[in-house]
Amino acid sequence: MNLLMFLAGLVLLVLGANALVRGASNLALSFGISPLVVGLTIVAFGTSAPEMAVSVGAVLDGRTDIAVGNVVGSNVFNVLFILGVSALITPLAVNRQLIRQEVPIMLGASLLLAALALDGSVSMIEGGLLFALLLGYTVFLIVQSRRESAAARSESGGETVPAEAGGWDSRLPVQLLLIAVGLAALVGGSDLLVQAAVSFAKAIGVSDLIIGLTIVSAGTSLPEVAASLAAAVKGERDIAVGNVVGSNVFNILGCVGLSGLVSGAAGLGIAPSVLNFDLWVMLAVALACLPVFMTGREIARWEGAVFVGYYVAYVTYLVLAAKDHDALPEFSVVMMSFVVPLTIVTLLVAMFGSRGGDRRSVGQGKG
């Protein structure tokens, strides 16, 4: 029964996210918002709507560990697993704007969350701050897009391309209905998913936090998985990367922010294990994006394999720690003494080698 509830919750979350994204995207385009802004905001935020629904629902149900674990686990899953598998399909080109703007914003949001969580909770005021920053980020993207669109129109002599005739979902009532149905499916799906996850945790003796960091976070990230893998298969590689980065920003500012707002006077509690380990894994994963993205401005297949390998190692550590397994000390020593340092050295060599190649190509061009 719990398995059926879990699967039903996942199906509702995926279908609800798809309906919400489709309706909101078409509605935004109908009001003249550029596809770029729609992709960075509504699509990326829409695919993260399951995380928000689950986190807020868990807080209202008193399961704050699931709420926090879901966000932290989803951000780790998005970068390591989704980008890793996408890069294994095809090397992912990284847009220069992502390196200069979006990834630093993701890093800043991750650092801010770590700073706010140091006292063991995210208060209502801090949650409001995070959510306000999300609104500011969205406004910034819209203003930036309008400026770029105005510059493009001036270069083309003011000419505009007429919009193509839309399909069945191009009418305003249909778009509003899709948004309403999507939101309802997300709420219902999140409730089923949280209930099933809690039952799983009790049945196998694993804490709510571990379930949130693994099963729930991976399940609520299915829309991101579908969007990024489809983009990679179609060759739209920048979309695959942009979707992950935008979703991670939304998870921190939106999911944690709104969860903190609805948590009441007690605030959103952060478990000691999250403060001591998982939050820093999330931050390290965000930091790893910069050197990886800068190696030739693409995520190569070998880098994708490293990402996937680290996600497997992360989940393995969580399971071993939850069961207090005898192999945990040896596993930790191998990871920290050999695997992690070797990966860091390899990435640094690749990054500086790429920069050297760029300088040589510039010098040859001048010659």
Rank of each mutant, 00 (worst) to 15 (best):
E155D: 04
T41S: 01
G182M: 06
S30C: 07
T41A: 00
A53F: 09
V349T: 04
N70R: 00
Q144M: 11
L7P: 01
D278V: 09
I210W: 10
I211P: 06
A227R: 10
S259L: 11
W302N: 08
F45S: 01
G158M: 01
E51G: 11
T295G: 07
V187N: 09
A151T: 15
G16V: 01
G57M: 01
G269E: 14
V334G: 11
G264P: 13
L29P: 03
G128V: 01
P272E: 13
Q364L: 14
A327I: 02
V244E: 04
L113G: 10
N251D: 14
F331E: 08
G136P: 08
A197P: 05
Y310M: 13
P35M: 00
L178A: 03
I142Y: 03
G367K: 13
S154V: 15
N243S: 02
I270K: 06
D61R: 08
L141I: 06
L209T: 01
I210D: 10
A184W: 06
A114Q: 12
C255I: 09
G212N: 03
L135R: 03
L192T: 02
L141C: 03
D65I: 03
L40Y: 02
I211Q: 07
A231L: 09
V262I: 07
I215K: 12
L222M: 14
V161H: 12
S74N: 02
R146I: 11
V21C: 04
V308L: 12
A180V: 05
V174M: 11
A218T: 09
F307L: 14
S361L: 14
F31E: 00
L279E: 14
Y317P: 05
V37E: 00
V312K: 04
S221F: 07
M336F: 08
M351P: 06
A350W: 06
Q97H: 10
E298M: 06
I33M: 13
V21T: 06
F140S: 08
I204N: 10
G260N: 05
A227K: 07
E159A: 07
V216A: 09
V194M: 03
A24Q: 01
G167T: 03
D65S: 04
D358P: 03
F352V: 15
V122D: 11
V333K: 15
I252Y: 05
E298K: 14
S221D: 03
A185C: 15
A44L: 02
F6S: 01
I344H: 08
G84I: 04
R146C: 09
P223H: 13
T90I: 11
L4A: 10
G23S: 02
L279H: 09
E155L: 05
A203K: 08
K366C: 08
L135A: 13
G16P: 03
A109F: 03
A185T: 05
L209R: 06
R237P: 15
I66E: 00
G365H: 10
P223D: 05
L318A: 14
